[in-house]
Structures are given as C-alpha cells and as structure tokens.
Amino acid sequence: MPDQLTISLNEILFIFTRAGFGVNAPIGISEDFARSNMWLAENGFDPSLCSVSALDSLDEGKSSLVIEQTEDGFSGSNSQYLSALQASVSVLDRVKGKQSVELTIANVDSPLLVVAALGANQVEGWKVCWCDEVGANFQVNFMANGQWHIISDGLGVIELSKGATMQVSLLGDTDVALEGNIQRLDSKVEKTKILQTGIAVHEHWNAIYAYFSRCLVKSTAESRASGAGAGLVDTD
C-alpha cells in the first residue's frame, strides 16, 4: 500500500462500522463510531490516527466497553480504560437528551472520538475539556453553525491524546477558555473542501482495514461456485 491513500466518506462509513464490529463492539455503537470518523474526516483529520489507538486498545483488552453511571457522569472499570466507542454514545445520549448540564467521564482511551460523536450530531453550545495521562490539556468548544474551536496547551497532539478524564458542560457566554493555541474550524467549509479532494489517510489505515477484514468470510471453492451472479465463465 502507498504511504498515503485518498478515500471517500462513504468508504469511512463502510470500513469503520465493520472495524468496530471487528473488535466486538455492538453494531449500533460501531455505526456511531463510523459516523464520528466521518466527521473527523470532514474536518480535515486523518480519522485512522486516533481510531486505530481506540481499536487496538479494545482488541488488546486495555480498554473496555463496560460502562457504569456515576453520580456526575460515567466511568469504566478500574483496571482498564473506558473505550471511547462506548463513552461517546453514552455522552451523546445524555447531551442530546439534555439530561445533564455537566458530565465527567473518567479514563477515556481516545477522547477525540467523544468530541467527534458530539460534532457528528451537530451539538451546539457545549464544551469538552480534558487533561490526558501525559498532562496535556485540551478544550473543544462547539459553537453555532458547525463552527468549533480546539484550544490546547501545546503539550500533545489531540488525535493521540489518551487516558483522559473529560468534562462535558454547557458553553457559557463568559467562559474563560484554556489559554493556549487555538485552532478554529468550520465543519461546513472543511466538508466542502474534502468533498472535492477526498480524505488522505496514512500509515494507520492498514490497521483499520485489518480490523475491518475480520468481518469478511474466507472464500472457498464451494462458496465461490455458489455465489450470486453468472457462472465463472459467461458468454451470450
């Protein structure tokens, strides 16, 4: 495979849904995972970068889909990370249902995927803050009309951020942002660009595809012969 491949949003939906399923995530959660990755791609990110980490972590048993409701949010088991695949849908359901105005989610393996789930569902007026296991701080603000900001202290790369306790809360008018680098993004503008260029994915794509491939069934001479379609040689 070349160092870089250009793919479509539809391919992300197809491949990532099955990649999630490939690490035994329920199909409904895998569907949300894929839509989150589409949103990341629409905003110019290589979605395989943070997702491969989340999938690896689940596959290796370092993360778990088991989630507990706590007084102020969610947590996973003590000995494992909480998988972002599960955390993202749980947070999303709370936020969309406006059941909580402040949530704390402990020890999430890939926090950018939680952000992506909110973005993919056009959440507005919320912010997400976290400090990860290497001490890097991030804040993501969701404004109106698909505009959003990433603010970071520069100590880490957001796609690689890991092991975070996240706070999700309403974005107030007087909120003081984390001081640091601000990246301003407009989902609609970025998506228009991406639709013209496709999405560039890099070295981690192979690993994503390998998880996807677990959903494929090995072909045998019998299954080949009985497949739909014409004979193996066909003329008329």
């Binding site: 069934v217 497949g227 739909a228």
Partner: peptide, 11 residues
C-alpha cells in the same frame, strides 16, 4: 455475509 473475494456479498 461479505466474502473476502472482492467483498462479494453472498447468501
């Protein structure tokens, strides 16, 4: 299911 053969759908 999808076959590994060019993702051919099969029944």
């Amino acid at each position: 299911y999808y076959s590994e053969d060019k993702l051919e759908p099969r029944f």
